[in-house]
């Protein structure tokens, strides 16, 4: 089961930061060391409101397929639906990034046969 290609209702992106280490010297000066050329810690929070239970089930099935937070997978393009391409490009792309679940999807039942799902994903450089 692949990650569902449904367009999200809301999306929140934490664009992460470059790996920087700060060292406090004895004389009070701070030295910052850049360890990489790519942003890390990119986080994507996606909410799918009022979707059919069958689609909500796909999220849980994919979570099982990935063995929870263990497996990595590419994201469908629908996760950036509604976003200008320039801004969407700032989210790590499929060429160098996979994603993994930060935790289990949260499913809220709102109506018979209708649920809302929230997932949080973390970018994994490959």
């Amino acid at each position: 089961m692949a990650f569902p290609s449904t367009a999200p209702s809301t999306r929140s992106v934490n664009y992460g930061d470059y790996p920087v280490k700060s060292v406090q010297m004895m004389d009070g000066f701070e030295t910052r060391i850049l360890y990489g050329s790519k942003r890390v810690g990119v986080e994507l929070q996606l909410a799918y409101n009022n979707i059919a239970d069958a689609i909500a089930e796909q999220f849980l099935s994919d979570y099982d397929t990935q063995r929870g937070t263990f497996g990595t997978f590419p994201l469908p393009s629908s996760t950036t639906d509604g976003m200008e391409q320039g801004l969407a490009n700032q989210i790590p792309g499929v060429s160098d990034t996979q994603w993994r679940y930060a935790g289990p999807p949260t499913v809220n039942s709102v109506y018979p046969g209708v649920s809302s799902v929230t997932v949080t994903l973390l970018a994994v450089l490959v």
Binding site: T6, A7, P8, S9, T10, R11, Y48, N49, N50, I51, S78, D81, G82, M83, V110, Y111, V114
Partner: peptide
């Protein structure tokens, strides 16, 4: 009504609710 609007939509969509 329950909102079924997703990020690609330009107009709000709904389904019957409680």
């Amino acid at each position: 009504p329950l909102s079924t609007t997703s990020l690609e939509d330009t107009d709000q969509t709904f389904m019957n609710g409680l």
